[in-house]
């Protein structure tokens, strides 16, 4: 039987962790380099870690850009992780390759003088931070049963700045408010790594798998 969930091969280091997490929650997931597979998939995951240009190049050279945009419009479940979330936007200061532009806004580096209570903060923002979910997240979504202020594992030096604040599903605090998750219909994206956030992270994969049906 064909895998119902397709993981797009972004050649990123966390591909296999994402697959293992989906398998752990009982899903059947396949890493694919074939754009035709996602057109027929019931669920798609766009993982990413590292540099946004590398992820966008992997998307472009394998012919994934248009199929991802079409898939997002189709209203089927799409989950984007970390740099996979960042490439949804129009572009990133980290590189030169334009993003997918599915969401309006840009990705910018944390300022180098980032501080909290007078203390300079390290970049990358690395470790477990609590997420404050918005009302929208607690409607019908992959975040619906995740307790407020749950801790998730983050590792990133760039953050998303959506033009439309209504897409924000969760925020965290690191020298100010940082966008931790966005959603739009069946599209959900997290800056944190649910596949590295223990049981609470697996809950998001479980919810995603359930929505795939």
């Amino acid at each position: 039987m064909a895998a119902r969930i397709a993981i797009i091969n972004t050649r990123a280091a966390n591909l296999h962790s994402v697959q293992k997490a989906l398998e752990k929650v009982g899903a059947s997931a396949e890493i694919t380099s074939d754009p035709a597979v996602i057109s027929n998939a019931a669920g798609v995951v766009l993982p990413g870690v590292g540099a946004s240009d590398a992820v966008m190049r992997a998307i472009n050279t394998q012919g994934f850009a248009e199929p991802i945009k079409q898939y997002a419009k189709s209203g089927r479940p799409l989950l984007c992780i970390c740099v996979g979330m960042q490439v949804l936007f129009e572009g990133s200061d980290e590189g030169e390759v334009p993003g997918l532009g599915i969401m309006k806004g840009r990705v910018k580096r944390f300022p180098s003088d980032l501080s909290e209570n007078g203390k300079r903060l390290k970049i990358p923002h690395m470790g477990w931070n609590s997420v404050n979910f918005t009302e929208q997240a607690y409607t019908d979504s992959v975040f619906a049963d995740i307790p407020q202020d749950s801790y998730f594992y983050f590792v990133h030096s760039y953050r998303c700045l959506p033009d439309d604040p209504s897409v924000v599903a969760g925020t965290t605090q690191y020298g100010g408010e940082v966008c931790a998750a966005v959603m739009q219909g069946e599209l959900a994206a997290t800056q944190f790594h649910p596949e590295k956030s223990g049981d609470i992270g697996l809950e998001i994969y479980k919810n995603f798998t359930r929505r795939v049906g």
Binding site: A13, H16, S17, A21, V155, E195, K196, S197, G198
Partner: peptide, 27 residues
């Protein structure tokens, strides 16, 4: 890494980009 879903760092005897790739691909 297929059983425990928290970050995992591996060290010891890493000499090349390929050594690192092997560990990352393993999880």
């Amino acid at each position: 890494s297929s059983q425990v879903f928290i970050p995992l760092t591996v060290g010891g005897g890493i000499r090349t980009v390929d050594d690192m790739r092997k560990m990352l691909e393993a999880g």
